[in-house]
């Protein structure tokens, strides 16, 4: 029996009996994938918001502006070819990030602030 889920934004769709890829069909050429980063306001870092497809950097930037900042969400945009991103592997997570875990002195909450003092 075909399963349907309502947990699809615009109405139930089958969750079984539907292929998720084309299998043996040859992969056609399409515009490369770009990751999009938006600085939402001055003083904040650029944050990853998603990706899009565009044939070159100029079009990628233009599309990013239209797609990801329709409601004035940003003051600055970065687009980066997805293939240029070098990521740490989740399997290395412990080796990568745990060493910082024993350096609580990097975090401000490590320090006692005498009661009544502010601006620290």
């Amino acid at each position: 029996m075909t399963s349907f889920t309502s947990a699809d934004g615009h109405g139930a769709v089958p969750t079984s009996g539907v292929p998720v890829d084309e299998g043996s069909v040859p992969h056609r050429s399409q515009a490369p994938l770009w990751e999009v980063f938006v600085r939402s306001k001055r003083g904040l870092s650029h944050t990853h918001v998603g990706s899009l497809r565009a044939p070159d950097a100029v079009m990628a930037l233009r599309n990013a502006r239209d797609v990801y900042t329709r409601r004035q969400e940003g003051v600055s945009l970065w687009v980066v070819p997805s293939t240029e991103i070098v990521a740490s592997s989740p399997d290395e997570k412990d080796a990568f990030f745990d060493p910082a875990g024993d350096k609580p002195y990097r975090h401000p909450t490590f320090y006692d602030v005498p009661e009544g003092l502010t601006h620290l």
């Binding site: 889920t5 947990a7 699809d8 934004g9 615009h10 109405g11 769709v13 089958p14 969750t15 539907v18 998720v20 890829d21």
Partner: peptide, 10 residues
């Protein structure tokens, strides 16, 4: 993939 793709199609 199935759910997100069909959501996008919708």
């Amino acid at each position: 993939v199935r759910q997100i793709a069909q959501h996008a199609h919708s």
